[in-house]
């Protein structure tokens, strides 16, 4: 049981973070709060991906040293952290900010039209 907790507690923390973001997206009525929840949700998922890349036992960063670059040393696959999830998540972070900009632009547009950020009031006016 203890071994299971030690091996898996990271994943559980990511799930808790994701739940916080999900709760904010569903329940909160303020639109900016919903966007904050979306941000937390995305970061939790990115965190999960990055954690799959981690290798325990003295793995180095995915940047080669001079000795490795000039061929004096062979590159051990187990000695380097997996760079592929980093690449995917790096693009995901920048897309996250782009979507954040568009979402905030939409929020400003809504505020200009309905003069409130509360979802319930907007729905009431729309009816």
């Amino acid at each position: 049981m203890i071994e299971l907790v030690i091996a898996k507690y990271n994943y559980w923390i990511y799930v808790i973070l994701m739940m916080i973001g999900f709760y904010a997206m569903i329940v909160k009525t303020n639109l900016v709060k919903k966007i904050i929840g979306m941000n937390i949700f995305q970061t939790a998922i990115i965190l999960f991906y990055i954690s799959t890349a981690y290798k325990m036992g003295g793995a180095t960063l995915p940047i080669m040293t001079d000795a490795q670059a000039h061929g004096h040393e062979a590159v051990l696959v187990d000695g380097v952290i997996n760079p592929l999830p980093h690449v995917l998540m790096l693009t995901a972070i920048v897309v996250m900010v782009a979507t954040l900009g568009v979402a905030l632009a939409i929020v400003i547009h809504i505020y200009r039209r309905y003069n409130t950020l509360n979802e319930d009031e907007i729905l009431k006016v729309m009816k």
């Binding site: 920048v94 900010v97 782009a98 900009g101 905030l104 632009a105 400003i108 200009r112």
Partner: peptide, 16 residues
């Protein structure tokens, strides 16, 4: 591209 888009989004959002 990233530089121009970030400044442009900031200008749009902050000035409305």
């Amino acid at each position: 591209a990233v530089m121009a888009v970030m400044v442009s989004i900031f200008l749009d959002i902050s000035t409305g």
